[in-house]
Write a protein that binds this DNA or RNA. Structure first.
Lengths: 337, 337
DNA sequence: TTGTATGCGTTATCAG
DNA sequence: CTGATAACGCATACAA
């Protein structure tokens, strides 16, 4: 029972107590913030713990405290520049407030979203952050009912219950139109994807609406998922025929990169002389010299800060604060006036 | 005690049992793979569980089973194309074998690696996968002593104890040299970073060694961390003076993209006519038309498969199988012979 | 300040 | 097949 040496197995507080010659509670108190232990006892415990390689079992701790320090991050396609940047921002901050992010990848099967949300409950996660995918209303309710916080990023089609953190796509898309209009463009295209996420749909629609107000028509191309390849394919489709557009608003920077490459390397076009391009997100690659893409920046850090404040309880739960503006980033893919 | 409605709190097996009119054990068995329960009981339990919104508490389950289903992923800079791709590959596969990835970001402070590894123990993780950073030998031993599996990706400076999964940098770097030599290049440069990770150092050295064997000298530039900006800066430094190189081997595709952009857009050079470029990793961007970078592919999927087999215990623990070849990917940044 | 006793939600063991 | 009971590792109310 009193195995002093930790042999290929986790050490318990009991073992530490025995070695230190104190009670189990003394060990517990030593590792509990703000508990009262004498310095002598604490030192004895710490020495023994170090010797044995003891580490508090958070699983057992969470059992008592009814809630774990785990925050679930639910999403697909992490390897995407935008998603991975958001993930980086979130995990870093979670770490800072003593929480830890558990990643649940829903990329695989389509039905896996249900399994994902179930897992967040299995681990008694204090919160779930949904980065992508379409969470069924019923599942979200289950989480909320279980006292779990649910935070949705850029999927503002869920009107109530979970907290929403999103970018003002409408405003930005309108501004994108005016950018292009001011540059003298009149044959407009929207490069989008078949993903049909709320963000992308909103960008498409708002751009088209702004154009319609100005009496202009818009060609929308959706030739696949939200990726570089899809943007490239869209360029191929759109630029081969007659009546080539002189401007393209891309629902995503990734699409924009693909589209620009098709324009340049498949059709020998010059951006922005022959065709102006505007993107969305401001991923790292947009700033690379090969692209120099004029786009709208999602304020990832500010959004992450806000999300953390929600989890931390430190921030005001102001319902309107979940909306962020996407500021234009002027580079060189749009002709100056 | 027999609150039928789950009001902002997690439901326990006890509550389900009461509603279903069976014992706690019956509930447990219903949710345990391969336990024997009659169909009638199972149905009663499932109905009650569904009604109450019950979910097995993995925290409590792990308490008994001495090991959790959690696998820790330790790393920094997830937003990097290579890292995020590896993360995507791993989390997806973990999901598939019923495990879940817990991400520990060591980006912040330098001393945080210790805290990271400690956390893996706190959560009784069955395994820790180190994607980046320099884990102190002592901490690794602590994990191993606690019965935890430690898997290191591309940091083969740790000779024993943890499992190593890595790419053969030596071989690939030598091949890179021969590619460039066959293309007729003779003024060679290596674009590297100040990160000093085992992989990068190995690539530098092996390339330089191969060049030395052929009687050629190599200029090595390290102007910052492993990033696009650093590659760009290296290009600026290297291409401004006289004696401009006619070939560059970049330790990373990210560096290569930056370097190519500097060459093209700062100095108006043509790749590969004026200068040949070879990268490493084969990140997504290398395949984009703007770069068309000839590089060496890290077999991310195969590596991830191997790692999973290690965790799963399904694979042979063959010590040599942890080494992977990086195959050349021919594109257009090197002159054909 | 310290130790003892209790309970958190599970699963494993054992008797029925 | 089922139910009672004992762990698992920890934090805490309570007594000393």
């Amino acid at each position: 029972m009193s195995e002093a040496r930790a042999e290929r197995s986790f050490v318990s507080a009991q073992q530490v107590a025995e070695l230190a010659g104190v009670s189990r509670s003394a060990v517990s108190r030593t590792f509990t913030e703000g508990a009262s232990v004498s310095d002598v006892t604490r030192q004895k415990v710490l020495r023994a713990a170090d010797l044995l390689g003891y580490h508090v079992n958070h699983l057992a701790r969470s059992l008592i405290q009814e809630e774990s320090l785990i925050v679930c991050l639910i999403g697909a396609e992490i390897s995407t520049p935008y998603q991975s940047r958001m993930l980086e921002a979130l995990t870093r901050r979670l770490q800072r407030i003593g929480r830890v992010g558990m990643f649940i990848n829903t990329s695989g099967e389509s039905a896996s979203f249900e399994a994902a949300l179930r897992q967040t409950l299995n681990y008694r996660a204090a919160a779930s952050i949904v980065l992508s995918g379409a969470p069924p209303e019923s599942l979200i309710r289950t989480c909320v009912n279980n006292g779990q916080q649910v935070i949705l990023i850029n999927r503002d089609n869920h009107p109530e219950g979970p907290a929403n953190v999103s970018v003002d796509n409408h405003q930005a898309a309108r501004e994108a139109f005016h950018m292009l209009a001011r540059a003298g463009c009149s044959t407009l295209a929207v490069i989008s994807s078949t993903a049909g996420t709320p963000s992308i749909v909103a960008r498409e629609r708002s751009f088209a609406a702004a154009a319609a107000e100005a009496g202009l028509k818009v060609t929308v191309v959706r030739s696949g998922p939200t990726s570089y390849a899809t943007g490239f394919e869209a360029g191929r489709l759109l630029l081969s025929g007659s009546g080539r557009p002189d401007a393209a608003f891309c629902a995503t920077d990734l699409l924009a990169c693909g589209f620009m490459d098709a324009a340049r390397y498949e059709f020998g076009l010059n951006v922005p002389a022959d065709i102006c391009v505007v993107g969305f997100d401001d991923i790292e690659q947009s700033g690379w010299s090969a692209y120099n893409l004029t786009t709208f920046r999602q304020p990832v850090d500010a959004m992450a800060d806000y999300i953390i404040s929600l989890i931390d309880g430190s921030g005001v739960e102001d319902i309107e604060r979940g909306r962020f503006m996407a500021a234009p980033v002027w580079r060189r893919s749009v002709r100056p006036r």
